[in-house]
Design a protein around this nucleic acid. Structure first.
Ligand SMILES: [Mn+2]
Ligand SMILES: [Mn+2]
Ligand SMILES: [Zn+2]
Ligand SMILES: [Zn+2]
Lengths: 147, 147
DNA sequence: TGTTAATTGAAAAGCATTATTATTTGATTG
DNA sequence: CAATCAAATAATAATGCTTTTCAATTAACA
């Protein structure tokens, strides 16, 4: 895991470099994304910030995520059911392990993926630019909690 | 690739066994899914069948896909942008290679995934039940077509 | 401090999918 | 080979998440 403070600074600097204003709402969103503990959703970001800024609009969270995404500083994990989770701590594509019970999302250590990518490129004659790998299952906590 | 005729029969039999009627609309949908050439979308299935049944409703395509999915006879590839593609020829989870230019979807041969799944299970203490692996890139045809 | 373009909040619009409902129809039975 | 009836269909309305709109606000810069 990258240092959240360094990630925060890096994202802020990127915003500055591209001529974007640093509003309190924006800073609050970046702060949460820099850590991305548990891979937050738009909704959970909104709820957390509302405690401090009661007028914070959901549209503002969406808008800022679109902006930060366009700068390549947050990884969006969009799911077919329409839900989205974010990782601003590590914005590069990487595998995820998702608990279908408690919705926890974890970053596993896996290095065999690069080799796999090369295999696929050779076999299919594609130029591979990106990838997405999700494992779905039940986490240890939820297994233990089962009756 | 499985034999489309055998897949067609298998899906039809599954429908019969579960007490579902075999309507002409349903048979037309199953026929396309059994082959799943190019991993069709709801829209492309609808367009193809409309040529024969001009009154075919889009809702009917959706309904039947939900049904066939519930019987485990089609794999749904849902994308974050809301689009969906289907594979009724091989309904088990498997990797896909997707061309971002022409939207072609290909099934690569990859066997190292099972091992990876075991690694992840051990490392994260999850019980892995399912997975999704997509590679995004540009296919040979689109590379060649580039000016 | 004043100027200005970016950003915001609130509400409306957009859009793929799902639900509703009246009508039609496949399958079963005798 | 009809009659029956639950299942399926077509058409349309509703849903729910995300984006857009627009007037008001504000960060940045001189
Ligand atoms: Mn992650
Ligand atoms: Mn496939
Ligand atoms: Zn869990
Ligand atoms: Zn292509």
């Amino acid at each position: 895991m990258a240092d959240p403070k360094k990630r925060f600074e890096a994202i802020i600097q990127k915003l500055r470099d591209n001529g974007h204003k640093l509003t309190p709402q924006r800073l609050a969103i970046v702060k949460i994304l820099a850590k991305s503990e548990g891979h937050p959703s738009v909704e959970s970001i909104h709820v957390r910030i509302k405690k401090e800024f009661s007028t914070m609009s959901l549209a503002t969270v969406y808008r800022n995520i679109v902006l930060i995404k366009s700068l390549g500083e947050v990884l969006e994990l969009g799911f077919p059911d329409g839900s989205n989770r974010y990782d601003g701590n590590n914005p590069e594509p990487h595998p995820h392990v998702i608990c279908i019970k408690c919705k926890k999302i974890v970053d596993p250590d896996l290095d065999s993926l690069d080799e796999m990518k090369k295999e696929v490129a050779v076999e299919t004659n594609f130029k591979i630019l990106n990838h997405r790998l999700d494992f779905f299952g039940i986490c240890g906590d939820c297994m233990a909690a089962k009756v």
